[in-house]
Simulated scan of single mutants.
Amino acid sequence: MKLALGFSVLIATLLTIAHASDPSPLQDFCVAINDSKAAVFVNGKICKSPNMVVAEDFFFSGLNKPGNTSNPLGSKVTPVNVNQLPGLNTLGISLARIDYAPYGLNPPHTHPRATEILVVLHGTLYVGFVTSNPADPNLKNKLFTKYLYPGDVFVFPEGLIHFHFNVGHENALAFAGLSSQNPGVITIANAVFGSDPPINKDVLTKAFQVDKKVIDYLQAQFWMNNN
């Protein structure tokens, strides 16, 4: 009985792991159609008929153009996921171009559905990620950081908070590969202090252990999206 129960738990665990990332495609491709007004919702995008697919469905142009970094963060992310390139649907991969002005920041954020691998083409970046809460309550979340130069590569595990900061006096450029057709982005400050409607001030005051005036100030700021 115990052996059978243990085997069942093992199978359930393996099945859970197998479905932890984007599902594997069951056909050559599943080009997404614009389903924003569709009455049917699926976990992903609805497929275009293969007979209607054209080469342009697998094509995107413009990543050679710098993003506009004239914003308070001094950075601009140009994503190429299933929303910009319909041929990525079900393929479990996407990418992004990130431009940074001098001292520009891609602020602390997470990708809830993807691991990110970053390669620097120009400039010097200070990057890092923070681990999830440790099992030992006496330990703190661990920070891993690195200075990156042209040709350097760094990986950010799926779901963990991470950031990129241009520490140089010139513009910087990096490209990121992501292990999902639609990785998603949660920018921490925007989500916590700029949600609509706002999170109750009593919740944030207790969570951050600060005076209510600090929360009032933070919630009154304009929290921009650099994507």
Rank of each mutant, 00 (worst) to 15 (best):
1 M>I: 12
2 K>L: 15
2 K>P: 11
2 K>C: 14
13 T>H: 08
14 L>D: 03
14 L>K: 08
18 A>V: 05
19 H>C: 09
20 A>K: 10
20 A>H: 08
21 S>D: 11
24 S>R: 08
25 P>I: 02
27 Q>C: 08
29 F>R: 14
29 F>M: 12
32 A>R: 02
34 N>K: 15
34 N>I: 03
36 S>Q: 14
38 A>F: 14
40 V>Q: 14
40 V>C: 12
41 F>L: 15
41 F>C: 15
44 G>A: 08
44 G>P: 10
45 K>Y: 13
45 K>L: 10
45 K>I: 10
47 C>Q: 05
47 C>A: 08
49 S>K: 15
50 P>N: 09
53 V>T: 12
54 V>T: 15
55 A>Y: 11
55 A>E: 11
55 A>I: 14
57 D>Y: 05
59 F>I: 07
59 F>V: 09
64 N>T: 12
65 K>M: 09
65 K>D: 00
66 P>A: 14
66 P>Y: 10
70 S>Y: 11
72 P>S: 01
72 P>M: 01
72 P>L: 04
73 L>W: 00
77 V>Y: 00
79 P>Q: 07
79 P>G: 08
79 P>N: 06
80 V>L: 03
84 Q>H: 05
84 Q>A: 11
85 L>I: 06
90 T>Y: 08
90 T>S: 10
90 T>K: 07
92 G>M: 02
93 I>C: 11
93 I>F: 12
94 S>T: 03
95 L>A: 14
96 A>E: 01
100 Y>N: 03
101 A>Y: 03
102 P>E: 04
102 P>S: 04
104 G>D: 01
105 L>Q: 05
106 N>M: 06
107 P>V: 03
107 P>S: 07
108 P>G: 09
112 P>D: 02
115 T>M: 13
115 T>C: 10
118 L>D: 09
121 L>I: 13
123 G>R: 07
123 G>E: 07
124 T>F: 09
128 G>I: 08
131 T>W: 03
132 S>C: 07
135 A>Y: 07
135 A>N: 13
136 D>I: 12
139 L>M: 14
139 L>I: 11
142 K>R: 14
143 L>C: 10
146 K>T: 14
147 Y>S: 13
148 L>S: 06
150 P>Q: 08
150 P>E: 08
152 D>Y: 11
157 P>H: 06
159 G>T: 01
160 L>P: 03
160 L>Y: 02
164 H>A: 14
165 F>C: 06
166 N>R: 07
167 V>A: 09
168 G>I: 01
169 H>P: 06
173 L>T: 13
173 L>W: 04
176 A>R: 00
177 G>N: 10
178 L>F: 08
179 S>R: 02
180 S>M: 02
181 Q>F: 01
181 Q>I: 03
183 P>A: 06
184 G>H: 01
186 I>C: 02
187 T>E: 03
188 I>K: 00
198 P>C: 04
201 K>T: 13
201 K>V: 14
202 D>K: 04
202 D>S: 11
202 D>T: 13
203 V>Y: 12
205 T>A: 06
205 T>M: 11
207 A>T: 08
207 A>K: 00
208 F>E: 02
209 Q>S: 10
210 V>P: 06
212 K>V: 12
213 K>N: 10
214 V>Y: 00
215 I>P: 10
223 W>Q: 00
225 N>Y: 01
226 N>Q: 00
